[in-house]
């Protein structure tokens, strides 16, 4: 077990930093194939392609020939007390063999129990029982996939009274025990911190920075007394500040801008991503313009309608 963990850790430590990437969305398929934009890499949602025998898979094959690709999933449900879904893992492995991603990631969450799926990234109980349970499932999944996996901190809207371990420590122990990598979603830290009264700076400071192979940035919806992670707009200033902090602490890792709802044209999406360059250093990052926050109360967390097929006639 220790040998395997060390092997996975070695692989995680040797992963490259491909630079600044974008999420591959069906809206941009034609644009990317026609214009070959200068994006460093693409992150693909595994579930959008793993069952496809049609256009999505056909497009992905072409894009994977031109760009480095990372596979990002939403259905592994590593925290669930249901057995691991081996059919899902099998399809994930088949897709990975075809696409040859730099790495495969999912979330520290559960999506359902008793064979149901809420299609949400639900918060895990953060205690020793849960840590042992999740670590054993990560080991199983990694051994099946024959590679280390990378886990992202989700945005959370509640915490449990029975939790005894702070999330940053839970992630640290998880990485130490299994050799997995971490995907630091800076926006999720900001959202969860606001919703659950913790300090996002402290959270990021206490993560194991050498295990972080990728960062996510995204926009969110402020609803007044809580924040929803909507991935539907520009990144806010406070998140960019956390990004600067994380960039300094990690020494710079692959960074991806998520945009899953109200998806703009490709150029606008790419331009927002490239802002990250301005925030890589403390000197430039902290001197950007102020912004006006907009409040709304009808936001939906983790929008997933982009995961449903988008026909092209």
């Amino acid at each position: 077990m220790i040998k395997k963990r060390d092997q996975y850790l070695k692989i995680i430590n040797a992963l490259p930093n491909p630079g600044l990437g974008l999420g591959l969305r069906s809206k941009h398929f034609n644009y990317i194939l026609e214009h070959n934009p200068a994006v460093d890499w693409f992150e693909v949602i595994s579930e959008n392609f793993m069952d496809s025998g049609g256009r999505p898979r056909h497009i992905l094959r072409q894009i994977a020939e031109k760009y480095p690709v990372v596979m990002h999933g939403v259905s592994l449900s590593i925290g669930s007390t249901d057995p691991l879904n081996m059919e899902y893992l099998g399809k994930l492995k088949t897709l990975a063999a075809e696409v040859k991603p730099l790495w495969i990631s999912d979330h520290l969450c559960w999506t359902g129990v008793n064979n149901l799926n809420t299609h949400d990234l639900l918060p895990v109980l953060l205690n020793e029982e849960s840590l042992k349970h999740i670590c054993s499932r990560i080991r199983m999944a990694q051994d099946f996939m024959d590679r280390p996996l990378v886990f992202e901190n989700p945005s959370t809207y509640l915490t449990f009274k029975q939790s005894t371990i702070p999330e940053w420590e839970f992630l640290k122990y998880m990485a130490e025990e299994t050799g997995c990598g971490l995907l630091l979603d800076v926006n999720n830290v900001y959202v969860s911190a606001f919703n659950n009264d913790f300090d996002p700076v402290h959270y990021i400071n206490h993560l194991p920075h050498n295990r972080i192979v990728q960062m996510h940035i995204a926009g969110h919806q402020h609803c007044g007394d809580y924040i929803i992670d909507t991935h539907d707009r520009n990144v806010v200033q406070d998140v960019w500040k956390l990004f600067t902090q994380a960039w300094q602490l990690t020494g710079g890792v692959a960074t991806l801008l998520e945009w899953d709802s109200n998806i703009p044209d490709f150029d606008e999406y790419h331009t927002e991503l490239l802002k990250a360059k301005q925030y890589m250093s403390v000197m430039t990052g902290y001197n950007m313009d102020t912004e006006k926050l907009e409040y709304s109360s009808d936001a939906v967390s983790n929008p997933v309608d982009f995961l449903v097929n988008d026909f092209k006639w």
């Binding site: 809420t118 939906v300 929008p303 997933v304």
Partner: peptide, 21 residues
Amino acid sequence: RHLNIYRSSYIARLRACLQNQ
């Protein structure tokens, strides 16, 4: 209210998926 964020998003999210389908 913390729990309600998940409760309201659950139905809204899946309803939107059905609407797309």
